[in-house]
Amino acid sequence: VTLFVASYDYEARTEDDLSFHKGEKFQILNSSEGDWWEARSLTTGETGYIPSNYVAPV
């Protein structure tokens, strides 16, 4: 399981994006799509795309 933590807050801009807060942890589901990764929030359980430059490895 690949875990990352949010370095910043992010507000979703499309329905496919995932909003999150600094400190929130994610399981990365797919990182092969470039700068936007499909992730599941371990806080909310929601799945969506997050900007990879807003998160760091745990």
Results as ranks from 00 to 15, higher is better:
residue 39 A to G: 06
residue 3 L to C: 11
residue 30 N to A: 08
residue 26 F to E: 00
residue 39 A to W: 02
residue 13 R to E: 10
residue 55 V to A: 05
residue 43 T to Q: 09
residue 28 I to E: 02
residue 56 A to F: 13
residue 47 T to D: 04
residue 28 I to N: 01
residue 12 A to K: 08
residue 48 G to R: 00
residue 23 G to P: 01
residue 52 S to P: 07
residue 28 I to H: 00
residue 17 D to K: 15
residue 39 A to H: 02
residue 14 T to W: 13
residue 28 I to L: 06
residue 11 E to H: 11
residue 7 S to Y: 14
residue 33 E to C: 14
residue 27 Q to V: 15
residue 41 S to R: 11
residue 8 Y to T: 09
residue 45 G to Y: 06
residue 51 P to Q: 06
residue 9 D to V: 03
residue 58 V to F: 12
residue 22 K to I: 09
residue 18 L to S: 00
residue 21 H to G: 07
residue 29 L to W: 05
residue 48 G to W: 03
residue 8 Y to V: 09
residue 7 S to K: 15
residue 58 V to A: 10
residue 17 D to I: 12
residue 1 V to H: 13
residue 3 L to A: 06
residue 56 A to K: 14
residue 15 E to M: 10
residue 57 P to S: 08
residue 32 S to L: 11
residue 26 F to P: 01
residue 20 F to R: 00
residue 32 S to W: 10
residue 56 A to N: 10
residue 37 W to E: 03
residue 40 R to Q: 11
residue 1 V to T: 12
residue 28 I to C: 05
residue 53 N to S: 14
residue 39 A to K: 00
residue 46 E to I: 10
residue 57 P to Y: 06
residue 28 I to W: 01
residue 49 Y to D: 02
residue 33 E to P: 09
residue 25 K to S: 07
residue 13 R to Y: 07
residue 8 Y to G: 07
residue 29 L to Y: 06
residue 53 N to D: 10
residue 40 R to S: 06
residue 13 R to N: 09
residue 30 N to W: 08
residue 32 S to N: 11
residue 27 Q to F: 13
residue 9 D to C: 08
residue 27 Q to H: 11
residue 11 E to Q: 12
residue 8 Y to M: 13
residue 34 G to Y: 09
residue 12 A to W: 03
residue 15 E to S: 12
residue 24 E to C: 05
residue 44 T to F: 02
residue 51 P to F: 06
residue 56 A to M: 14
residue 48 G to F: 05
residue 36 W to G: 02
residue 22 K to Y: 06
residue 19 S to F: 03
residue 58 V to G: 06
residue 22 K to L: 06
residue 33 E to V: 10
residue 26 F to M: 06
residue 38 E to D: 04
residue 20 F to S: 01
residue 36 W to C: 08
residue 28 I to Q: 01
residue 51 P to V: 02
residue 36 W to P: 03
residue 44 T to H: 04
residue 3 L to H: 09
residue 32 S to M: 12
residue 20 F to V: 04
residue 16 D to I: 13
residue 42 L to W: 07
residue 35 D to C: 11
residue 39 A to S: 01
residue 38 E to W: 15
residue 57 P to W: 06
residue 7 S to N: 14
residue 22 K to P: 03
residue 1 V to M: 13
residue 55 V to W: 03
residue 37 W to N: 01
residue 29 L to Q: 05
residue 24 E to W: 07
residue 51 P to M: 06
residue 42 L to C: 14
residue 12 A to D: 02
residue 50 I to G: 01
residue 10 Y to H: 05
residue 51 P to H: 08
residue 34 G to A: 13
residue 11 E to V: 14
residue 28 I to R: 02
residue 58 V to Q: 08
residue 41 S to Y: 02
residue 11 E to C: 14
residue 38 E to L: 15
residue 20 F to W: 01
residue 14 T to A: 12
residue 9 D to F: 04
residue 2 T to P: 11
residue 28 I to A: 02
residue 7 S to D: 08
residue 10 Y to L: 01
residue 55 V to N: 02
residue 43 T to D: 11
residue 20 F to P: 00
residue 17 D to W: 11
residue 53 N to E: 10
residue 37 W to F: 07
residue 33 E to Q: 14
residue 4 F to A: 08
residue 24 E to N: 05
residue 27 Q to M: 13
residue 44 T to N: 06
residue 29 L to F: 06
residue 39 A to E: 02
residue 30 N to I: 07
residue 46 E to S: 09
residue 11 E to R: 08
residue 22 K to H: 06
residue 52 S to K: 13
residue 11 E to F: 10
residue 26 F to N: 00
residue 51 P to G: 03
residue 10 Y to V: 00
residue 39 A to M: 05
residue 54 Y to I: 07
residue 49 Y to S: 06
residue 2 T to S: 11
residue 7 S to C: 15
residue 22 K to C: 07
residue 31 S to P: 09
residue 39 A to V: 14
residue 21 H to L: 12
residue 41 S to C: 07
residue 32 S to A: 12
residue 50 I to N: 01
residue 26 F to A: 01
residue 49 Y to C: 11
residue 45 G to Q: 06
residue 22 K to E: 07
residue 5 V to D: 02
residue 49 Y to F: 12
residue 24 E to G: 01
residue 13 R to T: 12
residue 25 K to Y: 15
residue 23 G to V: 00
residue 4 F to E: 01
residue 50 I to L: 05
residue 44 T to G: 02
residue 46 E to D: 08
residue 5 V to L: 06
residue 42 L to F: 07
residue 40 R to H: 08
residue 24 E to F: 04
residue 44 T to Y: 02
residue 43 T to G: 06
residue 39 A to Q: 00
residue 10 Y to Q: 01
residue 1 V to L: 13
residue 56 A to S: 13
residue 32 S to Y: 10
residue 3 L to S: 05
residue 43 T to P: 00
residue 19 S to D: 04
residue 4 F to G: 03
residue 29 L to S: 04
residue 5 V to Q: 09
residue 55 V to Y: 03
residue 57 P to K: 07
residue 21 H to N: 11
residue 56 A to D: 09
residue 23 G to T: 02
residue 4 F to L: 04
residue 36 W to D: 03
residue 42 L to E: 09
residue 48 G to H: 04
residue 14 T to F: 15
residue 36 W to Y: 11
residue 11 E to I: 13
residue 39 A to I: 04
residue 16 D to S: 14
residue 10 Y to T: 00
residue 9 D to K: 04
residue 9 D to P: 06
residue 54 Y to F: 11
residue 41 S to I: 06
residue 34 G to E: 13
residue 19 S to W: 02
residue 21 H to K: 15
